[in-house]
Every structure is written in structure tokens, then in C-alpha cells.
Design a protein around this nucleic acid. Sequence first.
RNA 1: GGUCACGUGGCCGAGUGGUUAGGCAGUGGUCUGCAAAACCUCUUACAGCGGUUCAAAUCCGCUCGUGACCUCCA
Length: 496
Amino acid sequence: MHTLHLYNSFSKKKETFQPIHPPYVNMYVCGPTVYGPAHLGHARSAITFDILFRHLQHSKYQVKYIRNITDVGHLENETEEDKIAQAAKKYSQEPMALAQHFTNSYRKDMQDLNILPPTIEPQASGHITEQIAIVQNIIKKGYGYVKNGSVYFDLQKYHQNFHYGTLSGRILEDLWEATRSLNHQKEKKNAHDFALWKKASEKHIMRWPSPWSEGYPGWHLECTAMSKKYFGSHFDIHGGGMDLLFPHHECEIAQAMCTEQQNPAKYWIHHNMITVKKQKMGKSLQNFITIQDLLQQHTLHPMAIRMFILQAHYRNPLNFSLPALQAAQKAYYKLYNGYQYLQANQVTTPTYNSNSYTQTLKKKIKNIEEKCTYAINDDLNTPKVIACLFDLLKIIHDLQKRMIDWQSLDQDTRICLYNTYTHFFKKILGLYEEEYKEKNTQYMMSILLPCYIEAKKNNNYDLIDHIRKALQKQNIRLKDLKNTVDWHYVMLNDKI
RNA sequence: GGUCACGUGGCCGAGUGGUUAGGCAGUGGUCUGCAAAACCUCUUACAGCGGUUCAAAUCCGCUCGUGACCUCCA
């Protein structure tokens, strides 16, 4: 697979990725509803599409990536109350202040996880006009009806002319049969009709004027409005969690089909859920763990979270446990130390040594590089990429131990090793620490290491132990090798 | 109840007709002032029962088990 293949939830097949208008790629991903702190599930979504974003960019595509912020219109089903408004009451804050607060914290969390910011991050509340225009269009086409100032989507009528349920594999007739008789919803013609516009009750704060009432837009509308505004009626990728597949994305398709006569996205990409004790992590079960909890209470390195998520394929469920995250953290430090070693040992002078051993090694490295490319192109198989990185790490360890002489390698081999490792570890998987920390540490070590080596020469064990202990406090451990001394990072809570 | 997934070694998790996934943990060794790291070594699994095949963990069927969606969730 030298080109990207992605599993398309719409066709339920792995497909060759071909942009509509190469080299441009437009990708729209459903972002969070900002009424609480981001948890591990949000991290999975953001990381999954971050990998896709990075890989597309490195595949020479010009990518526009939109990830929206839902700050209005997402209703609690039972109470029919806006999620933001309800949370605002709980925290005694104004809804928009609350939305802003959690938008900020979401961005900070994503930054901690080294997730690239999307090209555009639009907010639903900033696109009310566009949403109203779409409702008008849907009514004009005959698929929306007004009832007491609210507007609903007429699914039955839609289903007669288009087919509803292709994405989710639902059969509308079955849905009707399965529908419960509870009906606090007396305005709808059919239980599965969904709201396009809701009239605000007297006490409802979040409200905008519209041709039908003072009110607020339905949840499914924002993505349709914002994707159309920035991408037009047909774009390359639409992503989100599997839990959004139905009804959210199904409804988006319905809205687009009846107004634009086409499926909005060419590729529908859905990632699976994080589970806790095999059950979905989510707000309703109250079994979620926030990103800040993991970083602060459990003193995890942010990259441990990234590693944990990337060690599983995005379309499979991933079970959360602290030991699993800690294992991922150890694995991350190992890979990071390999990266750090390559950074410190970049070769600037060309050498032309070439023997049969180097040739074999070069072949081996090239082979791993190909495997990495194949894996990432094969529907973003990040676990396999990580496995390959560990294969490269083995080679790096050999170099480090001078079992393979670094100088005996020709430049091409070294560059290949460096480039492959750096490309996948840092650029594609996005696993790395902040540059400034890296540089500071390297500077400090360049001063300290000679002192340490000198002390070793003189068998000055007191000084040796002193340096070791001092560095341990900075999470750095020294490695005495046969002919030299090296250093590496250790876990924050590791014992000496 | 309907629709759809999935069941891999102590744990986490790839793979998918014949060839070592990988990580964590553990075993024994090499190295070492002591360590650590690294290296080598060992523990070699695919829910159960049938079937197809020269060959199945991988395809098909059944059984059991788990989960997701069907209502808000990334």
C-alpha cells in the first residue's frame, strides 16, 4: 500500500483514498460539546484525526481541517434542555461563559497532548444565520414543517424520495416499530423526526431570532451549516466517534441530501470508543476520566496518553486501565530515548564506508521504513508503526552499545535510520517533548557528562553517586557503557 | 427485541489462509565499584464444537460469552 487506504463507514469497505480535487483535502471532524472537561474519549477522537491530518500533510496534500466546537443546540434528551444551559446552571455561570471556559480547557488539553490545532475551529453559536438559512431551504424543498414556532425534519417524506439509514444500516420502518410510546414530544409527526429549530421557553437564555420564533438550532444542523460554509456541499472526509454515526451523521446526510442532492462527504471515518471495564466511557455512565486527572493526579506524561491510544487501532475498542497507561508510558520513554540518541548523534560529515555488514543493515532499515509506510497507509495502522519503531530502536541500541560502529555506517544508512525514526515517531505519531526542554537538557548534559567521566576515571564514587542522584531528580538516569557514558529519561514516579 | 461488532499468551494489544507482531510484567545469564540501561535466553496464545482446504487463530456454520448503537455521549 503505497497510497492511503481508509475504511469508509458509508461503503463499509476499505477504499483507496482519492481526494475530490487533489492536492486539496477537506476534512471535517465533529468536536466536543463544551459543557465539561475533556476526557480520554475526547483525546482518542482528537488524536485519531490528528494522525490522519499529519499523515495527509506529509503525503503532500494541502489539508484544510475543521473541528467544530458545539456551544449551543445540543439538548439533554429527557429534559429537552440545552446541555450548555444546564451545565451553566450547575456551575452558576452564564452559558456562554461556561462554553468559553471549557473551550479554553479543551484547547489546553489538546495542546498538552501535542495535537495540532485544526485549520478552522468554528463555533455553532457563531453560525446561527447559516443554520437558519439551511432550515429555510429544507422547508422550501418540502422536508421541514413548522409546529408552534419549532421546525422539524419530516423523515417519512424524506424516506419516500431518498433512502434514510444507509450509513448506520438502520431500517426506518424498524425504527418506528421499536419506538417507545413515551412521547413528551407531541409536536412531531413521527417520533424520529428531529428538530431543526426549537422555540425557546420563557426561561431559556440562549436564544436567537428566526422567522419561526426566538429560539435555537437543532444539534445536527451545525455540522451541515459549517461544513457547507467552509467546504461547500461536497468534501473529502467527515470524521467522528462511532457513537455519532446514528443518529447525528445519518441526520446530517439527510439534511444535505435534500438540500444539496448529495452525500456531503466522500469518506466517512469513525473511530471506536474507550471503554472502562469493557463498558463505554461516557458522561452518562459517569465512568470517565479526564485528561487533567491523568496528567496531574496520576502524574502521567502526556505522551503516555498518546502512546496508549496509538497502540490500539482506531477502529477497535480500547479498554482503559491505569496499568495499561503506565505500560504505555514506559514504552514511550524507551522510544523517546532512541529519538534523543539519534538527535545527539547526528552526523554532519559524510563517510563512504560500505561493507557487507552495512549493506545488510541498510537493507534492514529500508525494509522497516517500507513496513512503516505500508502500515500507516493501511487505514492508519499505528500499532504496527510502533512495533516497527521498536525494531529500529533495537538497531539504535546496538549502535549505542558500539556493537555496531556508528562511524562504520555510510551516510546514506544513517540518514535513512534518522529520517525514518524521526518521521514516524515525531512527525506522524506526534510523540515528542517540547523542543526547548530537549535543548536545555542536552546543553546541561554536555557540561555534566565530562565531569562524570572524569570522576569515573578517578574512581571518585562519592561524586559519581552525587551526580547520579542529582540527575535522578531531573528524571535523568546515566548509563555506563563500555567505552562511554550515555543518559536517558526515566518515568516520573520511577524509583532509583 | 432489532441492527452491528468482537472474543488472541499473566496484562495491554496487532495480524488474518502456510513465514517472530510489538509493548508491559516475569525467568535465567552477560556487563558493572554498586546500580541502571542495554544485550542474549526462557514462558509460544488465538472462546467451544463442527465443516471447507494439502494447510485455518485466519474462510463458512452453529453454540457460548462480551460489547456498541437503537435516547444525550468522542
